[in-house]
């Protein structure tokens, strides 16, 4: 752990109804994450990494146990408080970018700021800064269909980073990208992690991503199987 814990997960269990029974996705996870970590939840499909990421992101709630994110216990948050946590402190990056197709690059990156109390001028500066971090200042007026996959993911990173969140959760962010674009994206995220001290947590089984991680958490059947710390 690099710094004080911003995420504390204790005996986390998550069950989903399945037919007449239940499927247990997480079977008692214990984990802590500190500020500025560049960590990954690694495992095959069904290992529980996306479920864990969703709970950390307050998109889902634990069945048992506790997940405290930035001092907030996820299971005790109301829908409004969850939304507030996401709005102010969390950023998301998805496998399929999930950009708003009819809006420009600028508008996509600006959207999270519309939910916060920034003036037009402040928003413009923050968006342009974020686009500069990812090297897309020349694509401000382009729309997602006019961009390559790598460019789309860089827009998604800018969108996740524009409000300078404490924590960014990235679910298979390079799954749709070729090797060159994947390395480019990961290097960008690594630079932002170093410069802004933002904590990045990935859910992945992509070797390219794993190579960049400072901390690797291997999940297997809903449990932490193994953990590795890299010195970079």
């Amino acid at each position: 752990m690099e710094n004080s814990a911003i995420i504390q997960i204790n005996q986390l269990i998550k069950r989903f109804p399945m037919g007449k029974g239940e499927f247990t996705a997480l079977k008692g996870i214990n984990l802590n994450f500190g500020t500025g970590e560049f960590a990954g939840l690694i495992g095959p499909s069904g290992s529980g990494k996306t479920t864990l990421l969703n709970i950390i992101g307050s998109l889902d709630t634990p069945t048992k146990g506790e997940a405290v994110v930035l001092g907030k216990s996820i299971s005790k948050l109301s829908a409004k408080e969850s939304a507030k946590l996401r709005k102010e402190s969390l950023g998301f990056i998805f496998q399929s970018y999930n950009l708003l197709q009819v809006h420009t690059v600028f508008e996509n990156v600006e959207f999270p700021l519309l939910l916060l109390d920034y003036t037009t001028l402040e928003r413009k500066k923050m968006v342009m800064d974020a686009l500069e971090w990812v090297g897309l200042t020349d694509k401000v007026k382009s729309k997602p269909p006019q961009l390559s996959g790598g460019e789309c993911q860089r827009v998604a990173i800018a969108r996740a980073m524009v409000k300078k969140p404490s924590l960014v959760l990235a679910d298979e962010p390079t799954a749709n990208l070729d090797a060159a674009n994947s390395h480019n994206i990961l290097q960008t995220m690594l630079n932002l992690n170093r410069e802004l001290k933002t904590t990045f947590i990935f859910a992945t089984h992509d070797e390219k991503v794993i190579g960049y991680l400072k901390r690797k958490i291997f999940l297997k059947d809903g449990l932490v199987d193994q953990e590795e710390w890299m010195n970079q």
Partner: peptide, 14 residues
């Protein structure tokens, strides 16, 4: 749904 999902993820309330 995609748009709503992303907006919720960004912190927009339901």
């Amino acid at each position: 749904y995609g748009e709503f999902g992303i907006r919720l993820a960004m912190g927009e309330e339901k």
